[in-house]
Every structure is written in structure tokens, then in C-alpha cells.
Measured scan of single mutants.
Amino acid sequence: MAAGGDHGSPDSYRSPLASRYASPEMCFVFSDRYKFRTWRQLWLWLAEAEQTLGLPITDEQIQEMKSNLENIDFKMAAEEEKRLRHDVMAHVHTFGHCCPKAAGIIHLGATSCYVGDNTDLIILRNALDLLLPKLARVISRLADFAKERASLPTLGFTHFQPAQLTTVGKRCCLWIQDLCMDLQNLKRVRDDLRFRGVKGTTGTQASFLQLFEGDDHKVEQLDKMVTEKAGFKRAFIITGQTYTRKVDIEVLSVLASLGASVHKICTDIRLLANLKEMEEPFEKQQIGSSAMPYKRNPMRSERCCSLARHLMTLVMDPLQTASVQWFERTLDDSANRRICLAEAFLTADTILNTLQNISEGLVVYPKVIERRIRQELPFMATENIIMAMVKAGGSRQDCHEKIRVLSQQAASVVKQEGGDNDLIERIQVDAYFSPIHSQLDHLLDPSSFTGRASQQVQRFLEEEVYPLLKPYESVMKVKAELCL
């Protein structure tokens, strides 16, 4: 049975990233139509530049190519590739079939990587351009969430054990800070992308030097003109047959890092959902379990974690691919890159769409948070109580021993009897502590235990987050809708 299948058929496997999760716009960027249309555009740009620099290419040939950029006979191309065992030459023939007058000058002087690699770089750039505003929107939604809850005390956790208090907004800023680093890295790697350009079979530009009869300047002009037509500021000066596969490492490393950030955020949300302090959106008709109707599973956060793990592992592909590119190139890269580049971007696209949807509907339960604080705060307040007693004339050592005994009794009630923490009640009825009984409410005010959390939130948002989001103001209103 021949390899390949009808990918629109229910009898043929289709990647869930495309069929179930990723956005239509990201799927289109990695589609065959987008790819092969870009090949034709690159052939047109090459012909236009070659004509401008004096090669015998007519206006009629150029116009014929322009008129057929979208006229792609995919069936013919597939048949040609089956016959020739070469995808680029299959599309040269297919393009030439609908451009008979231009057929002889299509791909003039070029090698397969002229269309293959340059198209990949265009796709990487455009895919990054799709991700950047999506990530900015996630940051914006979380920034709104953090600002609104900047002063809401909550129990902090280290080692997932109760620690000092923080605020809900401050905790959210930990998430935002990681995503801001990801946004900066995505922008950097996007701006650092260079075009492969017009380089020939081993990167020496020998074929173009021959076409222009040894004119170095025209060869350099050709490279520059096509690079500018493709919208790049610069091209690699040095290439082998391909652009260095280190570029793929750079791009997928940034995406993998984004995956790590999203995994951490969504894990926190899942843990908070278990504590009943916070939940992701839950639709009115949504079913959490087929057997347990009360369940409210954090399905979206779980999906993000599941896909983020996949995204983090994909960076190993370009690392290994770059390491086995012998001399000017081997074909070890080809099949692998067809999979890992598309999957990385479709996965990143999915987790950003999902995280935006989550961040637009996060639900906080202040009463649950308050109750958990009441359970733990008495123990945390013991040092403040000791200091207040010393100020009232008591002995630190005597007070410490009193607190120690009462704390152990209260802990026994919590752990052995399943009761509430009654340390404060014990202190309130103990005559030894009568000098500070009137101060206990103040000493137990949760806001006095959150330090500068709310001020940190305000400063972080104003100095770091809002300036970073400013270039994306025009796209901030787009909502994230999930079908599944």
C-alpha cells in the first residue's frame, strides 16, 4: 500500500493539533497551500530580480507567473513527485505547466533550498508574528487579574506546605514575570531571523556568478533584492546548502521555554482548584465526569500541561538535527523538520489560546482563602504575639514557653481530632496574655502579614508589564474561544 493518505478522510490519521486544537490561522501558515504558494512567490521574486539585473526574462513571463501564483494543481504535483521522487522539481514542473512561456526560467540558477529553506524562514517569521500578540493578550488578562487582587491576602506555599502570606495578585505576578520573559525572547528570536537568500547549491553562489558572467556586484544585488522582497532586513552571508540548523534550535528553545512557563502556571491553577481557592472557567453544560456528576475538573489547565510537556520535548529534535548536518548538509534534517517545526508552533498556539481562555474567566473564592488563612495564621502570628507581650512588660522566655504549650495543644486538636485551630481562643482565655487581649485582632490582621506584596504588584505592572504590552494595544480586544 502506498504511503500517505487522504487526510480529510475519517479513515486516515490526522494530527489532533490540526484537527482538534490549533487555530485556523496557525494551521494555514503550515498548510501545503501556504507552503507551495510561497515557493511560487519566491520563484517570481527571483525572476523579477534577475530581470532587473539584466537576464533575458520578459515582462510577459513575469506576468504569467504572477497570474498563476494561486493556480496550484495539487493532484498534478503529487503525481509528479511520485514520478520524480523530488518535491521541488515536482512543483517546478507543475508551475511550468500553467506558465508555459515562463517554464524555462522558473528556478533559474537556484537549488531546492532556495524555495525550501527560504519558505521555512518566512513561515517561522509569520508563525512567530501570530504567537506574539496571543502571548501579549494572556499577559494582559493576567495583569488585569493581578491588579484587581493585588491586596487580597492568601496563604503562600513553599514545598506545598503553608508559608508566609502573600497576595493573590502577587502570586499571579510570578506567572506574568515568566511570560514577559517569554514574550521578550519570542520577539528577540523573531527579529534575529535572517533570510537564507540566493546562495546556490553549497552556499557559494557559483551558479549565479556564472549567470551574471562573473559580476560579483550583481550577485550581491540579486541576494539583497530577493531578501528585501521577502520582507527581511538581512540575509546570511555564510550558508551551506541550507541555512544553519542552529536557527531551528533557537526558535524551538524559546517555544519550549514558553511551554515550561505555561505548565507551571496551569499546575498552580490545578492545585488551587483542589484547594477550592480558584477555578478555571466551567461552562453551564460542561460535564466533569461521566460517573461523578459533582466533579469540576480543571480540564483546560490539564490540557495545557499535557501539550506543554510535548512542546518542551520537541527542542531535542533540532538539537540532534543540527549535530548531524555533515559538511554542507545531509538530508537527516528533512523529514524531522517537516514534523517538529509545525508541531512546535501548533502546540504553542494551542496552549496560548487555551491559557487566554482560562485567564479571561478565572474565578476566585475569597471566603475559602480566608478560612485557610484562619487555619494557619495563628501559628504564624506567634512571633508577633511574643513581641507584643514583651512590649507590655512580659518575659520573652516565659511567653515563648506559654505559646509553645498552647500551640501544641491547638495542633493536637487540628491533627488528632480534625478540629479547627483554636490557638487564639486559648490565648484569649489565658490570664497571662490579658495585657494584649485587646491587640489580638490587630495582630491577626492578614494584611499585616503580606509585606509589600501589593506595592510590588503595582510597581511591576507599571514599570515592566504595561510598557512591554504597549506595541500590542491594537490587538488586545480579541477574545479566545474554545470549541473543545
Rank of each mutant, 00 (worst) to 15 (best):
G4E: 14
R85T: 05
M181H: 15
A102G: 05
D182M: 08
E277F: 00
A90T: 14
R372D: 04
S306T: 03
R85C: 02
R459F: 13
M389G: 00
A291W: 14
L484D: 06
I139R: 02
E79A: 09
L423Y: 14
C305F: 02
S67D: 10
M181A: 04
L53K: 08
R337V: 00
L406D: 12
A127R: 02
L46E: 08
N185W: 03
Q221W: 08
G5T: 07
V413A: 02
R426N: 13
L406S: 02
A322F: 13
K35T: 14
S257K: 05
D144R: 08
Q458W: 11
E60N: 07
T321P: 07
L272G: 05
L222A: 13
I358T: 08
P281R: 11
L482M: 11
R20T: 14
S447V: 02
Y13Q: 10
D73I: 05
H263N: 12
I249G: 02
S412C: 05
R190I: 10
L42Y: 08
H7D: 08
D59P: 09
G54C: 12
H310T: 08
A103V: 03
V198D: 01
N126G: 07
V368P: 01
G96C: 11
I62L: 11
Q439V: 11
H7M: 14
L174S: 07
L406V: 02
N421F: 03
V138H: 12
T166G: 01
V226A: 03
R234E: 15
S448Q: 09
L132W: 04
D32M: 06
I176V: 10
D332Y: 01
P133E: 07
S447R: 08
C172S: 11
D117F: 05
L307M: 03
M292S: 05
D216M: 02
E148F: 09
F74E: 15
L482Q: 15
E213T: 05
Q210H: 15
M387A: 10
G361L: 11
A410G: 08
G361I: 08
V414I: 09
L252T: 15
E280F: 01
Q456S: 13
F95W: 08
K391N: 07
I106C: 01
N384W: 06
E279S: 02
M292H: 13
V368E: 11
Q455W: 13
A22M: 07
P298I: 15
T321R: 01
K479W: 10
L319C: 10
